[in-house]
Design a protein around this nucleic acid. Sequence first.
DNA 1: CGGATTTGACCCGCGC
DNA 2: GCGCGGGTCAAATCCG
Length: 295
Amino acid sequence: MAMAGAGDWPFAADEAYADSSAIFAELGWANGLAVVDAVGELLPPLDPPGELATPPPPLDLPETPAGSSADGAASSCSTDDADGGKPAAASTEAASKSLTPGKKGGKKRARQPRFAFMTKSEIDHLEDGYRWRKYGQKAVKNSPFPRSYYRCTNSKCTVKKRVERSSDDPSVVITTYEGQHSHHTVTFPRAAAASLSHIHAMAALAAAPCFSAHQQLYSNLQQPPPTMPLAAATTPASSSSSSLLQLPLHCNHELQVVASCGGYPSSSSSPPASVLPVDKGLLDDMVPRAMRHDG
DNA sequence: CGGATTTGACCCGCGC
DNA sequence: GCGCGGGTCAAATCCG
């Protein structure tokens, strides 16, 4: 596959980038993604229209018992589903295999809600208000850029994130978060964080499907055709989505809103109440109340 | 000196 | 069953 110019979305579902691609594919955006620059102006899509390697998976995925704990909040992300097309059960089964502690590779791969977003930035590891400790780096197949693995330094927080550059467009950084912070951004001054609030907002909303704002956003994001520029989604059709998408983009990075991961089955618009407190922290910290619609 | 990063090794799941 | 690739661990190293 290699780098076929800026034309091919590098994360075909049948490739190693299962996670990212799944997230994007979930939105039907496996191609034709648009980038919003720092002033909200629409930039040319990274990729021209084309066929998806695999059709976007349905969003109404069943919650996987193994991954859906109160802590994990949401059910295992539907990204698992697109993980090479294997059933989510396989992942959760693997996750349930609690490995011997202390042994190398003795990790419990419990899938947590994930979401990703793309930013145009020369900086790989974007400051997001939390402290991260890098715990690994791997070369990824079909990409000249390594993927870095980070873990939240908060011992009680299990949030992880992966950072990788698009092999298609090296200027694009793909950040994938897994899990939800159970604490505030105690290590990052609010004043400084303000400049990154749009990212936080995106992250918060994408990670907090319990909020109606996100639900509507999520819903709206799925409505546009795959090639529909994100900015087009800012039409006044939905006040909720527009309120989010019109977030001030005043940092140095161009934020490509690919954010979101599988949240809850479309059949159940309301997430478990148990997830609310978890999300509330981040939202309270970063998203103006006026922007929220959680009552 | 303590915390963060680097890096090689290991484990696991999946496709063939 | 085997090989590949992703994800994680942990010792070594680096840095403030």
